Simulated scan of single mutants.
Amino acid sequence: CPVPQVWEGYNAVRCVRAMVGDSGAVGTIRGDLSVHITRNLVHASDSVETAQREIGFWFPRDELVAWDSRDRDNIYGL
């Protein structure tokens, strides 16, 4: 059963793809948890443009909530 999520933040696509990793990359979701190279446990968009298109597959625009993190300044040093 898929559990779609939308993540946002500074370099979100790059950071999520680093966590997802390749199927053989130790310390990543795919590397540590995948059973077979052709059956991905998780999908991550490869660009902001792709993410915007793929978000539309799962969520109507009115279901997405804009919010400001209270830790934003601490995390990003703004």
Results as ranks from 00 to 15, higher is better:
D71N: 00
V65T: 10
L41M: 08
Q52H: 10
P2W: 04
M19S: 06
C15N: 09
D32K: 04
L78Q: 07
S45R: 05
R72N: 05
V26P: 07
R72V: 09
S34W: 08
F59T: 07
V26H: 06
L64C: 12
E8Q: 12
G27R: 03
L41W: 09
G56V: 04
H36E: 07
R70K: 02
H43M: 14
V6R: 01
T38P: 11
H36G: 09
F57T: 11
A25L: 10
I37L: 10
V48K: 02
A51Q: 08
N11S: 15
R39D: 15
G21V: 13
R17L: 04
G56K: 12
N11C: 06
Y10N: 01
R72H: 12
T38L: 15
I55M: 00
F57G: 11
L64E: 02
G31A: 08
R30I: 12
G31P: 09
E63P: 08
R70G: 03
L33V: 06
E63Y: 13
I55K: 01
S47R: 03
D22F: 02
E49K: 13
S45Q: 02
H43W: 13
I29Q: 00
N74P: 05
N11V: 07
H36Y: 14
S69Y: 03
Y10K: 05
D32W: 10
W7M: 02
P4L: 13
I29M: 14
V35M: 11
S34H: 06
R30F: 12
A66N: 13
L64R: 10
S34V: 09
D46K: 02
R14I: 01
I75F: 02
D22I: 06
D32H: 13
A66P: 08
A44H: 00
D62F: 11
I37W: 06
C1Q: 12
E8R: 07
V65A: 04
G27W: 07
Y10V: 00
